[in-house]
Design a protein around this nucleic acid. Structure first.
Length: 285
DNA sequence: AAGAGGCCCTGATAGC
DNA sequence: TGCTATCAGGGCCTCT
């Protein structure tokens, strides 16, 4: 589910609702996430204040005084914020403004003053990791720039692609090259850039690279404005869907008409490195 | 070193 | 209705 825009939506709501709250109690119901949640997780976090919430590519970072809690939502992770007053009265309706707390897979729960923050993740590909400052910096030094950062510029991209035989679709998904794009936005970016997903990185022209840079930024920004994309189970912390899925030009539009004016082609679906890829072979060369 | 592929996991859906 | 197979938005690890 969650690519950069969806994680940004979560970050914004957390920032609005739980900044400066203290973690009073933590319950971990299932430690088997992508990485094992350590035994001392609860002890380390208890009584820490959430001084700041930030995001780096697809990672959420809770700034807790001297330590940092990095959260990745994997494929199916969602974070739910529930007003504790309402939770006690009624756990299961939209009546109090919260529509959809799942019944299963609520693995981690933070009890704050006003809210309960609940981490739900059916597939358990997500994780929670605790870092000290030094290790946090090391962790993020190992991933590429995010598309919205100025470091993701023409020079960076062209230099990176010299002699690279891998196709461009796989590079957009490669978090060491650029971090934050996932399978949905990769297809959308390549369609707008008019580049065939199978084109080798080293054979991209200057203008291809300009387009990749431009559309990576603009599509992600548009998606953020629309509250992210909800395909299967992305919800914001209030349990509402995003709206960018209505703007998809190719993703999940197999056999439908290409939306480019004057193109009478159909959107095709092809599995590239085990991931579905959607494109128009007439427009994308 | 770069690139390809396996694997972790559950749930929704399609086909029989 | 109920079984099985396939697929899903990620990324780490291993092997060549």
């Amino acid at each position: 589910m969650p690519e950069l825009p969806e994680v940004e939506i979560v970050k914004q709501s957390l920032d609005k609702n739980i900044k400066f709250e203290k973690i009073k109690k933590i319950v971990v119901r299932n430690r088997s996430l992508r990485f094992k949640v350590p035994k001392n997780f609860e002890i380390i976090l208890k009584n820490k204040t959430i001084n700041k919430i930030s995001r780096k590519s697809k990672y959420l970072i809770l700034h807790l005084e001297d330590i940092y809690c990095v959260i990745h939502l994997g494929m199916s992770g969602t974070i739910h914020l529930i007003n504790r007053k309402n939770f006690n009265k009624n756990t299961n309706t939209s009546f109090y403004g919260y529509s959809s707390l799942p019944l299963k897979h609520n693995h981690i729960e933070f009890f704050l003053k006003k809210y309960r923050l609940i981490y739900n993740d059916p597939r358990r590909f997500g994780f929670f990791k605790i870092f000290k400052k030094k290790k946090l910096l090391d962790f993020f030094n190992n991933i590429g720039p995010e598309p919205l950062n100025n470091k993701f510029n023409i020079n960076y991209i062209s230099n990176y692609f010299i002699n690279k035989k891998k196709n461009i679709k796989n590079f957009l998904l490669d978090q060491k090259f650029v971090s934050g794009i996932g399978n949905i936005y990769a297809s959308e970016i390549l369609f707008c850039s008019k580049i065939n997903p199978l084109k080798k990185a080293k054979s991209l022209t200057k203008s291809d690279i300009k387009n990749i840079k431009y559309f990576s930024k603009s599509i992600l920004n548009q998606a953020i404005k629309k509250g992210g994309s909800s395909i299967r189970n992305f919800k914001n912390v209030q349990g509402d869907n995003g709206r960018y899925q209505n703007e998809f030009k190719v993703y999940q539009r197999e056999n439908l008409n290409c939306l480019n004016r004057d193109c009478y082609g159909k959107v095709e679906k092809k599995v590239i490195s085990k991931r579905s890829t959607f494109f128009c072979s007439r427009c994308q060369k």
